[in-house]
Design a binder for these strands. Structure first.
Length: 361
DNA sequence: TCTGGGGTCCTTTATCGG
DNA sequence: TCTGCCGATAAAGGACCC
């Protein structure tokens, strides 16, 4: 693709960076004997755990993220299972992003292992952007021994699909003017925002590639994906995505949830579980100097359907007993509306405020 | 004994005061 | 006094993402 010194660019240049099999890669660095083995970071293969990350050895057996660990074990008898160590991943992640900011200062982190870079701030052309992306890859590797894939284009959506294009470790640059033709052949599911539901609807309507979504007549689009979602996805399928980098980092809600080893019906046990989770939540609130005004309880029934009940207070709270009490009341309400055994309960708070804000200023 | 845990955003519906 | 409308906010559900 041509990427010559394209005069002045009115549009953005955005890169998307994605660390390769991040959790698994960290575990391999911590224990190099894992490097040659199929590895899954995730839950209990004999319980209800799922795969968080599989290394590339494990992927050869068809193992991938979100698959149940039991299924992963069936696909490869000698796969090694490791429990996630999130605080370790956070440390590695911080180191990575500090390194990235040394090359491109403006970054939006969208997860421990991925984020967008404002390359346009440092590069004027796509040729320069490519050099910069290579420099990011080199420095991350030098600083942390981790590898990453990067996509560069004029928008978030194209940069993201580009970073996914050559994995692991690849670099894909899609210059201005080539966005739609680059996206066109990809499977519809690769478009961010198209999940299982939208995919099903689109495929039922004969739309299987991003290009055919881009070309879909207005009426057809409205029939398959009503509402603003459809229009937005079609715009993105055409490579049009006005979103800039979102640099604000404040949490909107925090929550704790737990799937039981076996489904639970006993009210006292459920209450005890909620109270323990409320205590954890409360600890987290106090550690970070925040309170929440809205408490919600989440129930997942055996058929996987989800109910939530929530209640709002006039003032924020951080007390574990109080949150637990409210959460139990909400659980009772939900179970009155729809009785049944539960496989998961959760409790969350939103409407967060930081009560040390004034003191810090 | 399929199917985690932590989030965000959007839409619809209910409720309430003016 | 009754009714309708409007806007704001809360509550609930759904889809999606890593």
């Amino acid at each position: 693709m041509p990427e010559g010194p394209a005069s002045t660019l009115s549009s953005m240049i955005i890169a998307h960076l994605d660390l390769d099999a991040f959790f698994a890669a960290v575990e391999e660095l911590e224990d190099p004997t894992l490097r040659t083995k199929p590895l899954v970071v995730g839950g209990d293969p004999h319980g209800r755990g799922v795969v968080a990350t599989a290394n590339y050895e494990a992927r050869k057996f068809g193992i991938h993220s979100a698959m149940s660990c039991a299924e992963a074990l069936r696909r490869c008898r000698h796969v090694v299972f490791v429990r996630p160590r999130h605080s370790l991943y956070r440390e590695y992640s911080q180191h990575v992003w500090e390194t990235v900011r040394g090359v491109v200062p403006t970054v939006e982190r969208t997860g421990l292992d991925e984020g967008y870079l404002d390359v346009g701030e440092v590069a004027a052309t796509f040729l320069q952007a490519r050099k910069l992306a290579e420099a990011v890859q080199t420095s991350v590797r030098a600083a942390t021994s981790l590898t990453c894939a990067i996509g560069v284009s004029t928008s978030k959506v194209v940069a993201k699909i580009a970073s996914d294009h050559r994995k692991p470790g690849g670099l894909t640059v899609v210059p201005e003017g080539h966005e739609a033709s680059f996206l066109s052949p990809f499977d519809i599911r690769r478009l961010p925002g198209v999940g299982p539901k939208a995919e099903q609807r689109l495929v039922a309507g004969g739309v299987e590639t991003i290009g055919s979504l881009a070309a879909l007549p207005e009426g057809e689009l409205r029939r398959l994906l009503p509402g603003s979602v459809g229009r937005m996805l079609q715009e993105r399928a055409r490579g049009i995505d006005p979103r800039g980098l979102d640099l604000q980092t404040q949490r909107i809600s925090i929550s704790v949830e737990n799937t039981f080893e076996r489904d639970l019906t006993d009210r006292a046990q459920l209450h005890a579980e909620l109270r323990r989770m409320a205590e954890r939540l409360s600890q987290h609130l106090r550690d970070t100097g925040r309170t929440g005004r809205t408490v919600s309880t989440k129930l997942r029934y055996t058929d996987f359907s989800i109910r939530t009940r929530s209640t709002s207070l006039r003032v924020g709270i951080d007390d574990g007993e109080q949150i637990g009490e409210l959460a139990c009341g909400l659980l009772d309400r939900a179970l009155t509306d729809r009785p049944g055994a539960l496989r998961l309960v959760g409790v969350g708070v939103s409407g967060l405020a930081s009560h040390r804000q004034l003191a810090l200023v």
